[in-house]
Design a protein around this nucleic acid. Structure first.
Lengths: 153, 153
DNA sequence: CTTTTTGACTATCTCTGACTATTATTATAA
DNA sequence: TTATAATAATAGTCAGAGATAGTCAAAAAG
């Protein structure tokens, strides 16, 4: 029993993909397409296309009014990660690495579990077979690689 | 006379087998199917489909609400992971590592994003600073460490 | 005594509609 | 012609109704 809101959400997201990141609609038109009251469109937008979820919405009332939804997060999260990756040096200590990873959680770039995995992968324990003098290089390479893998999703 | 809770438990487990590991129900619907109060469904879930027993449950209230039960693994995820960790040798190739990681996703042990992170951490690219003859040892250590970090969550 | 069953009360999410706010267009007055 | 007022065309807000699921403690069963 799919909810109408979910159906409308899906419809809009597909449009956004088709239109490559932005879509412009008219509230009443969309509402009548889905046989619902216009305010349902507002409901869908305010619960599904929030800034937190990576969307930016603007609108205008009056004759020729519209609602425009833009997807911002995929790029900006990717950009942010690229920025961090570029700022990382060729060597990094376990402690510094953990600080970075904790920051990613704070900034909602990664989940707690993902952070645990990353910390585990970059811990001295995991790298015990790597000679001390190479360890910080390897750690930096691993961390960068893990972060890079997230920029494409 | 079998207890109702047992009957509902059995019904759900069969459904889970049919649906290959996951089932989605509506509380009221299921309750009326078995002629019981809706909260009995909660009772069954909270006593029979616990995390300890290898199930993961999520739900949503409101119109079109649902309860979704996923079987993580016959054993608990932690046990399963420990088993895998112990079965891993001291060396592992990139290819073998990826096969393992893909299996974890299939068995609902980890998420797709987590898999990507793990693959990135154990790729030859990430380990390019590690001499070839040590690489598979380091990779095995990293993989084990990442998996270990998940056994405690 | 422990487990199961029940139901009253609560929490959360969705849908609806009346009322409000804003903008564009058209009509009217100066 | 220009300024202003009325009208039309949109979108926004919010509270209430509807639809689910969750909690908890008492009653019932074993």
């Amino acid at each position: 029993m799919a909810r109408l809101s979910d159906i409308i959400e899906e419809f809009l997201k597909e449009l956004i993909i088709e239109e490559e990141g932005t879509v412009e609609i008219q509230r009443n038109e969309l509402a009548s397409k889905f046989n619902c009251v216009p305010s349902q469109i507002n409901y869908v937008i305010s619960t599904r296309f929030t800034a937190e979820k990576g969307y930016y919405v603007e609108s205008r009332r009056g004759g020729g009014g519209y609602i425009c939804i833009k997807r911002v997060n995929p790029d900006s999260a990717g950009d942010y990660l690229m920025h961090i990756i570029n700022s990382l040096g060729d060597k990094i200590s376990q402690l510094t690495s953990e600080v970075f990873i904790n920051n990613f959680v704070d900034y909602n770039i990664i989940e707690t579990r993902e952070a645990m995995i990353m910390k585990a992968a970059t811990s001295d324990k995991a790298l015990s077979f790597v000679p001390m003098d190479k360890r910080d290089d390897v750690r930096a390479a691993i961390l960068k690689n893990m972060l890079m893998s997230l920029t494409v999703l």
